Simulated scan of single mutants.
Amino acid sequence: MEGDVCKRVGNRIRKLRLERGWTQTYLSVHSGLGRPFISNIERGQKELCLRSLEILALAFEISLSQLMRGI
């Protein structure tokens, strides 16, 4: 695995979001997390707690293990 874990998680979140055709604003509204927070996640500038990871997994309608796949 290459790179910082926060950047890898951010890239995974961005990939899932773009696959669905969602904007950061849509993911923000859909998950209840702030848009600046999502932006910081995607840029690898925020460390996510388990609760935030679970919220994102629920927003994407996938399991935590699916969210973390490939990281």
Rank of each mutant, 00 (worst) to 15 (best):
S52A: 06
G44S: 01
G44P: 01
R20H: 05
E54H: 14
G70I: 07
F60N: 01
R69A: 15
Q24E: 12
E47W: 13
R43W: 06
V29A: 08
V9C: 04
A59M: 06
C49Q: 14
A59E: 02
T23G: 12
L53K: 01
L67R: 00
I38M: 04
K46H: 12
R14K: 15
R17M: 04
D4N: 13
R43A: 11
S39A: 15
L67T: 00
I62M: 10
R35N: 11
G70L: 11
L50A: 08
R69S: 11
I41V: 13
C6P: 03
E19K: 10
L64V: 00
N40K: 09
T25S: 13
L64S: 05
L27I: 10
C49A: 07
R20A: 09
V9H: 02
L16N: 12
E19T: 09
Q45S: 13
S28I: 13
R20T: 06
R17P: 07
M68A: 11
K46F: 04
K15R: 12
G44C: 00
R43I: 07
Q45Y: 15
Q45I: 09
E54V: 03
E42P: 01
S28D: 03
T25M: 10
L27A: 14
I41T: 05
I62T: 00
L53A: 03
V9E: 02
M68R: 07
H30L: 13
R51P: 06
E61D: 15
S63M: 08
E19Q: 14
R51D: 11
G32P: 04
L27K: 00
D4P: 05
L64F: 02
R35M: 13
M1I: 07
I13S: 02
I13F: 00
Q24M: 15
K15F: 09
G70C: 03
G34I: 06
G32M: 03
I41S: 00
K7R: 12
T25R: 11
Q24G: 11
R8C: 07
G10D: 02
H30M: 11
G44Q: 00
G3D: 09
S63W: 01
L16E: 07
N40M: 10
V5W: 13
Y26V: 14
K15M: 10
R43L: 15
R51Q: 14
E61G: 06
S28W: 05
R35W: 11
G10Q: 01
P36C: 05
L53M: 00
L27M: 04
R51H: 14
D4T: 10
E42G: 07
T25A: 11
S39M: 12
K15E: 13
A59Y: 01
Q66F: 09
S28N: 05
R20W: 10
E61A: 04
A57I: 03
R35F: 08
W22E: 07
Q45M: 10
E47T: 08
M68N: 06
F37N: 03
C49S: 11
K7D: 08
Y26T: 12
K7E: 10
